[in-house]
Nucleic acid binder design. Structure first.
Lengths: 219, 219
DNA sequence: CGTTATCTTGACCGTCGTCAAACAGGGTGG
DNA sequence: CCACCCTGTTTGACGACGGTCAAGATAACG
């Protein structure tokens, strides 16, 4: 159970990791850097996420994980977890489940980056955050604190920081969101979902249908 | 053990599948379609791939799988596989391993589509095919039969068919590849890897180092 | 052979990237 | 308390990579 500062690496590409970390609180992101030096954010981890299953069963890490905010993480030794999976099939099934949901999110990200324009990409990623946070009880009402800079948002959507800024302003001007600093508020949740071509199916959130996609603002 | 025609669906988005299919021979691809009607190919399955672990442990499919060529597939009942995983931890570990490798490839695809220009994207995907096919003993020498049309290649790379065509011609003009119909030959394998920013690490192919990245053409 | 899918090519255009500068906030230290 | 950064956000002017539209060439296939 360690507390680490924002920017700290939990894993580096090329590492041969010995522990599996779980995010207790705070945020992190997976990233890869191209030969040209461009960065792509591959996933954002939120509190409660296990971030090292990849490295638990694969030998060398193919990407890096870095903290977005000051966070506390718990660390489980690699072989302890492996033994646990072998001793307790139910744990194995849980790992499989978690991994498959992550893969589903990755698939949606490929679509997002590959086939949607900038406006839809940003709308989509905002919707995804909102729903994921809400599903863990981390979002209060119809707003949430976006834990990333516009530059990181750009790296997550395959855009440039400049363009992210412009598009965010457009979404705001259109009355879909409003924001003060990094706090994003959903003014028209349904319209934002439409713009972002968002459906929560790919998140595979248990509990069947959303009780309410977002607590307010969609009646 | 069934034989199905090209274009046949193995899974449809929204399905609640009852079987897990394994590709015995032939090729398939995973796809998602946006609200705008644009298609994104999310992964390409080659002979030997299990294509339904996602649906084995998740309830409703978040994407479709379609055959690229006439293929034969074996089908395992869903609950049989689930019971097997619970009875035999080693099987569970194997499923986890497979799933994690697939996720790693997905991460690389996000990078490919998000942060590389058209030329690098295509070079990269060609390298990936070559190495994956070779690792299963399916590629002979320094050439292989690309099982997809340029339109499908476009959907896999987030480009348009027109642009794919242009870029392929550029790669050819640069002396990196040569092609007759869908047969792609690697004229300068090392240069192609450089252009595509390709490293086989993310494929997590066992057997440590490549005996030879490509049999010929890289001495 | 005709019919259809795929590939190829050209002209034009738009979304998004690049470059660069100005403008907050939010710490820190004098 | 007020310079002074430093990081992050905001804006503008301009350019390019890749998209769109459309036509023609080339296979594959029945």
């Amino acid at each position: 159970m360690r507390k680490l500062d924002a920017g700290a690496y939990l894993v580096r590409e090329g590492d041969v990791p010995t522990h599996c970390a779980v995010l207790i609180n705070g945020f992190a992101y997976r990233q890869k850097v191209t030969g040209e030096g461009a960065r792509q954010i591959i996933a954002v981890c939120i509190p409660g996420d296990a971030i090292d299953f990849q490295n638990m069963f694969l030998d060398v890490s193919d990407h890096s994980v870095q903290l977005l905010t000051r966070s506390t993480v718990a660390e489980i030794p690699r072989d302890a977890l492996q033994q646990l999976v072998e001793a307790r099939p139910a744990v194995g099934v849980a790992v499989i489940h978690t991994t498959l949901v992550e893969a589903s999110i990755l698939r949606e990200w490929v679509v997002n980056v590959g086939r949607r324009d900038a406006r839809a990409r940003l709308a989509h990623i905002l919707c995804e955050f909102a729903v994921r946070l809400e599903s863990r009880g981390l979002a209060k009402g119809d707003a949430f604190e976006l834990p990333m800079t516009q530059e990181q948002l750009a790296d997550a959507t395959g855009l440039t920081p400049v363009h992210v800024n412009r598009v965010l302003k457009i979404l705001e001007a259109e009355g879909l969101i409003s924001r003060q600093r990094r706090n994003v508020q959903f003014v028209d949740w349904r319209a934002l979902q439409d713009v972002g071509d968002f459906s929560r199916r790919y998140l595979h959130i248990p509990g069947g249908e959303p009780v309410r996609a977002r607590p307010s603002a969609d009646a």
